[in-house]
Design a protein around this nucleic acid. Structure first.
Length: 256
DNA sequence: ATGGTTGCCTCGCAA
């Protein structure tokens, strides 16, 4: 069972790129972020034609998350609990077979002097509380997405240059560790300890050709899922294609 | 060198 996460930066702008990658990699479950459209505008038929069920939480212009799955999708949750006033489309969760999965688009948080940074930290605390609830079920669970968190200096091309950024600063990393320390496993890091393995390269300033990136897209596994972890990887190919997203897919393979 | 790019229904904002 291959599960991938990919921030596509507009599903409409990325449709050819995404369908090409689905045909190549044949993943069982794909968690998408930044679909940047309302749910009725999502190109559902293009993915049905490739054998995928589709569920979305859309929003005009910004944000938006989706689940693609070869097996049926059940028991949908479309909001992260903890703040009924939060209208941003950043969370979708469902059951597929014996697996609970979520597609997460965690707030960027820049600039840190704005109200965006406290929103990010509040959102992370909400995620921590909800992850604790999900972990109490003691079932296979994958919380995957664009976390907008650089976990360590090994995950950024210029640690000093990024030190004060909302993706990197001490409070952000501490909040991320509070989530992980509930008992989650970073699937990529569990099997690959190399520094400089990135999932995002800024469009600006030639970051991709110079391989100056960030690892900010993560798959966090419950113990019952981590026990089945057999492989992981980052597919760099889509980042080098025409009309690329600034993110590229990260995936893991679970046995059974 | 205070740059640079992409996507959106915008005439700036978010990333």
């Amino acid at each position: 069972m291959k599960i991938a996460t990919w921030n596509v930066n507009s599903i409409k702008a990325r449709l050819a790129n995404v369908t090409h990658w689905l045909e190549q990699g044949r993943p069982d479950i794909v968690l998408l972020q930044e679909i940047k459209c309302q749910s009725p505008d999502f190109p559902v038929l293009d993915f049905k034609a490739l054998g995928y069920h589709v569920e979305t939480v859309g929003q005009k212009t910004y944000n938006g998350v989706a689940i693609l799955s070869r097996a049926p999708i059940a028991d949908l949750v479309t909001r992260l609990p903890g703040d009924e006033t939060d209208e941003q489309a950043r969370y979708i969760e469902a059951t597929i077979g014996n697996l609970r999965v979520a597609s997460i688009y965690l707030p960027n948080g820049n600039p840190v002097e704005s109200d965006k940074y406290p929103y990010k930290l509040r959102w992370m605390e909400r995620l921590r509380r909800h992850a604790a609830t999900l972990l109490a079920r003691e079932r296979p669970l994958v919380l995957a997405g664009d976390y907008n968190v650089i976990p360590t200096d090994a995950d950024v091309y210029d640690p000093e240059g990024w030190r004060a950024d909302a993706l990197c600063r001490t409070e952000t990393r501490a909040a991320f560790r509070r989530i992980v320390h509930l008992g989650l496993t970073d699937a990529f890091r569990a099997l690959d300890d190399r520094a400089g393995q990135y999932s995002f390269w800024d469009y600006q300033a030639g970051r991709w050709p110079r391989d100056e990136g960030l690892r900010i897209d993560h798959l966090l596994l419950s113990p019952q899922a981590a026990d089945r972890l057999v492989a992981t990887g980052i597919d760099r190919d889509p980042r080098g294609r025409e009309k690329a997203s600034d993110h590229t897919p990260v995936w893991c393979e679970l046995s059974g």
